[in-house]
Design a protein around this nucleic acid. Structure first.
Length: 474
RNA sequence: GGUCCCAUCGUCUAGCGGUUAGGACACCGGGUUUUCAUCCCGGCAACAGGGGUUCGAUUCCCCUUGGGAUCACCA
């Protein structure tokens, strides 16, 4: 059987990590088996639909590199891939059920159904519509909701992630398959579409697990073979016990793009949130994920979203990238002053800060002093745990001595290193004092990369100019 | 309430009858000629509880507890 997986979101908002992870798993299975990954938009709820969110979802998947082989924009052999364009198909399949006596028109008003529900609740019994199934329902004319006539029974089935599952007949009920507005419900439409689109694995998140018996019942009524089922647990909020939601601050996945995370970081992070390959490996390339991922090592319980871990993983991926590959990815993240500088200069700066960069959005904070003179902040000295013990006058002499030595330098890293070491000996000061002073004078930053390397990039004019400026204030 | 799912350090997890219960993130120390970061070394920290089964349970079974999902003309 050919492997065909699908991601079938409803266009009701932006994508966050929770949703993307399901898509990732489906995509990984397809890649690994040489199968196809299908994108299908489940836009059957006109009320909840959010304008533009279909595009947004596609953009997110594209940024992550989860390209689909068939979908609403590119079509495919089993289209259309938007449920709202498949209404005639659902109607046709519904009619088959009606003809076979396996579906019937629901004669009740919503208020009446609500009453049934309340009385069931008052009796502390679960509400099952089939307890109120009409004896001779009206002929279905399309204006009433159409219900599936279920056949209650117990089920056992295998889930690729959760293992062997079972449920009693209380889980089976007469659910609505076609709404009175003519649109199908998810419960019906996805069954038909998965079948027609020849989906081999249905990979979806946990909220659907309780409905699986209903689907099994429907597959039987329709006489169609069910695909493999895989239920992925939720991603939980960082502190709460609940499923991660937009309310918990779950970010739009494209926010991570805007903040300067690498897509491969997000993929690695989401995959290892609830999955591991059994070894102690934590950092995976996309390629490795494709070969190593498998559904039965996916955790059954929900995992908390941990921003710290994401940050660490992001830094790790950034560090692993060769500078030549890293540099082009940073182009939208440099401070505005950097536009005046050439690629070679920026690339050299990037090389210096690469190891401390967690995401590209940090670039301005880490590098502005390479591009412009910052206002001299004497508090950096007066608050410095070593320098504050010194008299201003002594610091001035020290800095003057440093300046004198640096004036003779060719500003190569080697020469600068040699001179700085000489200064250490001549002055008898600890590096914590001497280097801190020069660093603050030249960068006006509380932290910076190695001193010799920094000075070499700033170069002679800038370095000496900044030292003089600080000297003037001491 | 019915049905169903889940349960190892704070977090992500390894473990599939016998282990000093391992790793990673975070945190705390120490080291690598300043700071920050990287890297290295070390530390802190867990089998929810109770019954079984067994020579032996983190591991298998049951119960309890805790958490979650679902019971829509939402997906």
């Amino acid at each position: 059987m050919k492997v065909r997986t699908r991601f079938a979101p409803s266009p009701t908002g932006y994508m966050h990590v929770g949703g993307v992870r399901t898509a990732l798993f489906a995509w990984l299975i397809a890649q690994q088996q040489g199968g196809k990954f299908i994108l299908r938009l489940e836009d059957t709820d006109k009320a909840r639909e959010v304008e533009g969110s279909g595009d947004h979802i596609m953009q997110s998947l594209k940024w992550l590199g989860l390209q689909w082989d068939e979908g609403p924009d590119i079509g495919g052999p089993f289209g259309p891939y938007k449920q709202s364009e498949r209404l005639a198909i659902y109607k046709e399949w519904a009619q088959k059920l009606v003809d076979g006596g396996q579906a019937y028109a629901d004669p009740y008003t919503m208020a009446e159904v609500e009453k049934f529900r309340e009385s069931a609740k008052a009796a502390k019994k679960p509400f099952l519509f089939r307890d109120y199934r009409p004896h001779d329902p009206p002929k279905w004319d399309g204006s009433q909701p159409l219900r599936f006539r279920s056949e209650p029974k117990t089920y056992q089935w295998h889930d690729e992630v959760m293992g062997d599952l079972s449920a009693g007949e209380e889980a089976i009920d007469d659910f609505i398959i076609l709404k009175s507005d003519g649109y199908p419900t998810y419960n019906f439409a996805h069954i038909i579409d998965d079948y027609l689109m020849q989906i081999s694995h249905v990979i979806r998140s946990q909220e659907f697990i309780a409905s699986v018996p209903k689907y099994l019942n429907l597959y039987e009524a329709l006489c169609i073979e069910r695909p493999m089922l895989a239920t992925v647990p939720f991603v939980m909020g960082p502190d709460g016990k609940k499923k991660l939601s937009k309310r918990d601050g779950a970010k739009d996945i494209l926010d991570y793009a805007r903040e300067g995370y690498l897509p491969e970081t997000l993929l690695n992070f989401m995959a290892t949130l609830g999955w591991n390959d059994g070894t102690e490996q934590e950092v995976f390339s996309v390629k490795e994920l494709i070969t190593k991922f498998n559904l039965d090592r996916v955790q059954r319980g929900g995992a908390h979203f941990d921003e710290q871990r994401l940050l660490w993983m992001s830094g790790s991926h950034i560090r692993e990238l060769p500078l030549d590959e890293l540099y082009p990815k940073t182009k939208d993240f440099w401070p505005p002053e950097a536009t005046k500088y050439g690629d070679a200069y920026k690339k050299a700066v990037l090389g210096l800060v690469q190891e401390r960069l967690k995401f590209f959005g940090e670039l301005p904070n880490l590098t502005t002093f390479f591009f412009k003179d910052l206002a001299i902040d004497m508090e950096l000295i007066s608050n410095h745990k070593q320098l504050k013990k010194y008299e201003k006058h002594d610091l001035k002499l020290l800095l003057q001595q440093a300046k004198q030595s640096l004036e003779g330098s060719d500003f190569s890293v080697n020469d600068l290193t040699a001179r700085l070491n000489d200064l250490l000996e001549q002055t008898g000061e600890k590096p914590a004092v001497l280097f801190s002073l020069i660093r603050i004078a030249t960068t006006q930053a509380p932290a910076s990369p190695g001193l010799a390397e920094t000075l070499a990039i700033l170069d002679r004019d800038v370095s000496l100019r900044r030292i003089s400026a600080t000297l003037a204030k001491l």
